[in-house]
C-alpha cells in the first residue's frame, strides 16, 4: 500500500505567478530636500516589507522609472526582489511625466511577453505614479495608453499626488478607474507599507476573487 502515497518528485514545481509593479516616481527639482529624502526612505521600506513577506516576495517583481531633468530614467529593471539593489533618487530638472509613463508601460509589456514565453502566470500589472507637480511634456499619448489598458482591466493605476501643488487633474488622465489620492504630508512610509500589504493580498488571490485592498492607514488626505 506504500504506493498510495505520492512523492514530491512525482509532482510539478510551477513558478509562482507574478505581480509586476512599476513605480513611476517624480524626482524633478521641486522634490529637492525632504520630499526626495522621504520618497527614497519609502521606496526602501517598500522593498524591505515585500522581502519580509514570503508569498509577496515570491510574487512581486518591481521596476522603478524616475522622471526629472530632461528625460525619464530606468532606475531599476524587473527582477528577483531578493537580488535587487534599491536606487537612490536625486532631484533635479523638469517633470517629463508623459515620457516616463510611456517608458513604464513599455517595460510592463516587455515583462508580460517574457512571462508568456517562459510559461509564467501573472496577475494584472500595477503602475504607481507619484508626482508633486504638473507634467512639463505632452502626456496625451501616454495618458491614452494608460487609460485604454485600465479600462480593459489590463493595468491597475495608483495615481498619487505629493503636496499641495500636485496636479491631480493631470494624474486623473492616466487613471479612469481610480481617482488620484493626495499623500498626507510626506507620509511615504505609510503609503509604501500599505502598497506592500496590497501586493501581498493580490498575490494570494484566486480566480473570480475581488481583492479588497487594506485600509490606507492614514497616508492619504481625506
Amino acid at each position: 500500500m506504500d504506493d498510495l502515497f505520492l512523492q514530491h518528485k512525482e509532482l510539478i514545481e510551477n513558478p509562482t505567478a507574478r505581480v509586476p509593479i512599476c513605480l513611476v516616481l517624480d524626482r524633478s527639482g521641486s522634490m529637492s530636500g525632504e520630499p526626495i529624502a522621504e520618497l527614497n526612505k519609502g521606496v526602501q521600506l517598500f522593498i524591505q516589507s515585500i522581502r519580509r513577506d514570503d508569498i509577496a516576495a515570491a510574487a512581486a517583481e518591481i521596476a522603478i522609472v524616475s522622471f526629472g531633468d530632461e528625460a525619464p530614467r530606468k532606475e531599476l529593471d524587473f527582477g528577483s526582489i531578493e537580488r535587487q539593489k534599491v536606487p537612490y533618487l536625486t532631484a533635479s530638472g523638469l517633470t517629463p511625466m508623459g515620457a516616463a509613463v510611456n517608458m513604464a508601460l513599455d517595460m510592463l509589456e516587455l515583462r508580460k511577453k517574457m512571462y508568456q514565453q517562459t510559461g509564467v502566470d501573472y496577475y494584472q500589472p500595477w503602475m504607481v505614479l507619484m508626482t508633486d507637480g504638473a507634467p512639463t511634456d505632452d502626456i496625451t499619448q501616454a495618458a491614452e495608453r494608460s487609460t485604454q489598458l485600465a479600462l480593459a482591466r489590463k493595468l491597475t493605476v495608483f495615481p498619487i499626488g505629493i503636496g499641495p501643488h500636485a496636479d491631480l487633474s493631470a494624474l486623473k488622465q492616466f487613471s479612469p478607474r481610480r481617482d488620484p489620492a493626495r499623500l498626507k504630508g510626506l507620509n511615504f512610509s505609510l503609503f509604501f507599507e500599505w502598497l506592500s500589504k496590497s501586493v501581498s493580498a493580490v498575490s494570494q488571490s484566486t480566480p473570480g476573487e475581488r481583492i479588497p485592498l487594506p485600509k490606507t492607514g492614514g497616508w492619504d488626505e481625506l
Partner: peptide, 22 residues
C-alpha cells in the same frame, strides 16, 4: 493543477499516471 500540470511544458506530472493506477 498547480502540482500536477506544468504550465511551461504543458505536460502532466508522473503522479497522474500513478493515481490512475490505484
Amino acid at each position: 493543477a498547480e502540482s500536477l500540470y506544468s504550465r511551461k511544458d504543458q505536460s502532466l506530472a508522473t503522479a497522474v499516471n500513478k493515481m490512475m493506477g490505484w
